[in-house]
Design a protein around this nucleic acid. Structure first.
Lengths: 216, 216
DNA sequence: TCTCGATTGAAACGATCGTATACTTCAGTC
DNA sequence: GACTGAAGTATACGATCGTTTCAATCGAGA
């Protein structure tokens, strides 16, 4: 058996079980049963079960953030001359990676980690909340900096708007029927675009409406 | 001891513990310890622990929906002459009750139930998912009917927009710092308005932007 | 071939879980 | 005052949890 293979199999099995059964309902005995490892292997390789879970969360958020940061850094010519187009570009750079990993054509290896993250965001038992906060705080800082460069919003206003859009994006990206619709389509990319495009328009429209003092 | 008092104390203690520690981390032994009841009392009054939880969820959603439906039914003169104002009125009718119960001046007895609902929305273990779906489906049906009366959206478009706004509203309503900001203010109502008003503008702006074919 | 650290295996630990059973208490009724 | 049925108490059951211990095994370097 390859060196370090058991460790990988443990991670993979834990990832799958946590995503389908829920983190709280997943036990180390279920994991070792799933991948044919020994009960002690988890403690030998990870120290404890919570540490394994936290490694899953870290891997998922790191992979997602790497992609988001790369696309955010690649953004050029953001201008206040065409605010809607610039805002759309920023939102796409920050959240297209989320959708691609949650329901894109190659979601198999990336979706499960995001499902776990979404579960933990509302779980007060605090299995991996601090790890999660660290990663998401860095993203929030960066995307708000990009948006603030051309949006007229006050910081608190921008923060509120992005909190709203962020919640909507995660919810829709990880909704089971979002995956269903892209899987059953003959062109997953096109199907996903049909889901994300309206959401991005929603986000841009919402952000702009926040500061323009409209509709009251 | 009053008749049926133990039953109420059990409900109250379970509500508090589930909201603070998480539904998955709450045990019947913790509940009876909290309220000084006997271990068997839970099975005597509710049959099983899952049934108690499902009663908490039902009560929370029923209380919320009663208020939302009443306000939605009271809406008159919605018109496509002033779409933004009409959309704002509908969103307020549907979601102001959520915020009032989650962080309003009298949140003490209502917030915990909503926290539990929010946890269960992303928990695949399926403790009370069917019960939850039933209640939220009815609300979705009603509010989309009201909006569809004057919005030009196609049904799928309206559905997507409301899914986005719904996720944002729940997330922000139950965010701990939302409660913090309203509690520390000398006028909780005003403080809550300062949080909800931008969100409602965001929602109206987002919904309108979805169908106007803007920003691309 | 021998050795030694790295890894795996088998078994058990103490704790806690949700549930079930049997007994006691006690108000209300005839 | 005996009886009834609801409500509460004490205790135990079997299962499963995460963790620990310790011996067996493997693989590469001497």
């Amino acid at each position: 058996m390859r060196r370090g293979e058991v460790r990988d199999r443990l991670l993979e099995a834990a990832l799958r079980l946590c995503a389908t059964d829920g983190v709280g309902a997943t036990t180390i005995r279920g994991v070792i049963r799933e991948c044919g490892a020994n009960l002690n292997a988890i403690h030998y390789h990870f120290g404890s079960w919570p540490k394994l879970v936290s490694e899953l969360v870290t891997a998922a958020m790191q992979g997602l953030n790497d992609e988001r940061f790369e696309r955010l850094d690649a953004l050029t010519d953001l201008t206040s001359d065409d605010v809607p187009a610039s805002a759309l570009a920023v939102l796409e750079a920050g959240y297209a990676p989320l959708f691609r990993r949650a329901a894109g054509p190659d979601w198999q290896s990336t979706r499960a980690g995001l499902v776990i993250v979404q579960q933990l965001r509302f779980d007060p038992s605090g299995l991996g909340l601090d790890v999660l906060d660290h990663h998401s705080a860095e993203f929030v800082r960066r995307i708000e900096a990009r948006l603030g460069a051309f949006l007229p919003h006050r910081p608190a206003e921008l923060r509120a708007g992005m909190q709203a859009f962020n919640a909507a994006a995660w919810d829709i990206a990880l909704r089971p029927d979002t995956l269903e619709r892209t899987r059953s389509a003959q062109s997953p990319e096109r199907a996903l675009k049909r889901i994300t495009a309206p959401l991005f328009r929603f986000g841009v429209g919402g952000l702009l409406a926040m500061s323009k003092g409209m509709a009251k």
